[in-house]
Design a protein around this nucleic acid. Structure first.
Lengths: 104, 104
DNA sequence: CGATTAGTTTCTATATTTGGAAACTTTACA
DNA sequence: TGTAAAGTTTCCAAATATAGAAACTAATCG
């Protein structure tokens, strides 16, 4: 077991874990548009604000989004828009693979 | 809730879920080098072959790797090497964000 | 000050993921 | 044929993740 390689794998896996939930990806895609506060996202997704807040925490902890506090509101924005392009790109590449896999 | 956007998010999340486990990322990085069979990977990672096999199934199901059966062996290879470059790229971008986040 | 609004954290029940052991399948080959 | 090797699948226990309710914090504003 290559230690350096494992540490790299662990770090990357952690980032992808943050991106591994439908609502969290939905949040990322939505934020690409423009920044939003927690309750806006919660309402848009139809979940409790505590649920939205927790998903946002995970994304922030992973370094994917940033927040700015203004009064009682917390505005969230993408930290690295390129990550999203990356998601779309690999998504497309993999989708093509799966299609050929399924014979579509 | 934007339906199209949610479906896209769901699809991408599914791919990232396959990449969200340290051992699975380790497998991907290792396969970048050259193809391997299940027992080679199991031994290298120090886990039961059933464990390696299950992780490989998930990666295959997500369209990230392909397999070729030869005799009793099943050789796994990367399906889309670009996905790995993508992983390194976003990893770096996010890492930089986290550093500035932590004030490093 | 007291009420309201926006968020976060805690608690709890449920669901999913994971690893390893054991059973099973398939191919090789003595 | 029967034994071994390589994989997969099934089973189970332990660990983790998730949603929503409730409690809590902090800022605004009458």
């Amino acid at each position: 077991m290559n230690e350096t390689r494992y540490l790299q794998a662990q770090r990357q896996a952690h980032m992808f874990k943050a991106m591994s939930h439908p609502l969290r990806m939905y949040i990322l895609v939505t934020l690409k548009d423009r920044p939003r506060c927690v309750c806006e996202l919660a309402e848009e997704m139809g979940v409790d604000k505590s649920v939205a807040s927790k998903h946002l925490s995970q994304l922030r902890e992973a370094g994917l989004i940033k927040d700015t506090k203004t009064g009682t509101q917390v505005e969230y924005r993408l930290a690295a828009p390129c990550v999203l392009e990356v998601a779309t790109c690999s998504d497309t590449a993999v989708l093509m693979n799966r299609k050929s896999l399924l014979g579509i």
